[in-house]
């Protein structure tokens, strides 16, 4: 599903953020990418999500080389990636309308979008807050909403950047359970985190990004 080879990335001021990164994530896998702050996790996710233009190395997502994609093909690939960036900020709309917004801009009609949005919100257990203002919900519900937005159009790959950030230990554990549930539905998921991982996720593959390189385990 994801294949990174000899990936390099230099920041604007010439600092090596990623240096000869090799990483493979297979279809249906749930992988945690850990590392300290400013290790390059967000850059790596941004590259895979086609949001940051690649510099050196090869990035294959779903068999397609990102560097060689036309603008149109890159947009098509983005539609198959449910990407939630760090500190996801919802739209100043209701919870339901946040999910509907994404689906409508991707071309769904109102009824179709509403149906898919309700299914996604049900999957993340947020149907009780459909009419709540998304900017006023609790942090844990904000993460649930982010997940719903990511999965609503049934993408092939999910990329979550620091979903545990600013959550209590209890809420982190709930998010882990939610990730497991989503994973069980067949999604391929890559999650970055720098917070200590709750014991639940020890059964999944964890890779570490340190000094610009990826290390397993």
């Amino acid at each position: 599903m994801i294949q990174l080879s000899e990936l390099q990335f230099l920041s604007e001021d010439g600092i090596k953020v990623l240096d000869d990164v090799h990483l493979r994530v297979d279809r249906g896998e749930l992988v945690f990418l850990t590392g300290p702050a400013a290790a390059g996790k967000t850059i790596l996710l941004g590259l895979v999500a086609t949001q940051i233009p690649p510099q050196n190395g090869q990035i294959l997502v779903h068999g397609r080389n990102i560097a060689r994609l036309s603008r149109k093909k890159a947009f098509q690939l983005r539609r198959q990636i449910g990407f939630i960036p760090q500190r996801f900020s919802p739209l100043p709309k209701t919870v339901l309308d946040n999910v509907i917004f994404k689906l409508r801009t991707l071309g769904d009609f109102r009824e179709q979008a509403e149906e898919k949005a309700l299914a996604a919100l049900e999957m993340v257990s947020l149907t009780r807050k459909l009419a709540a203002s998304a900017t006023e919900i609790e942090p844990i519900d904000r993460v649930r909403l982010a997940f719903a937005v990511a999965i609503c159009n049934d993408p092939l790959l999910l990329l979550f950047d620091e979903p545990f950030e600013e959550l209590s230990a209890d809420d982190r554990s709930k998010v882990c359970s939610l990730l497991e549930e989503i994973h069980l539905r067949g999604f391929t998921i890559l999650v970055t985190t720098r917070n200590p991982l709750p014991s639940l996720i020890e059964k999944y593959r964890v890779v570490q990004l340190l000094d610009g390189k990826v290390k397993e385990g």
Partner: peptide, 11 residues
């Protein structure tokens, strides 16, 4: 925020 969400979604 809407524009960013659209960019994320691949609109």
């Amino acid at each position: 925020e809407e524009i960013r969400m659209m960019r994320l979604a691949g609109t």
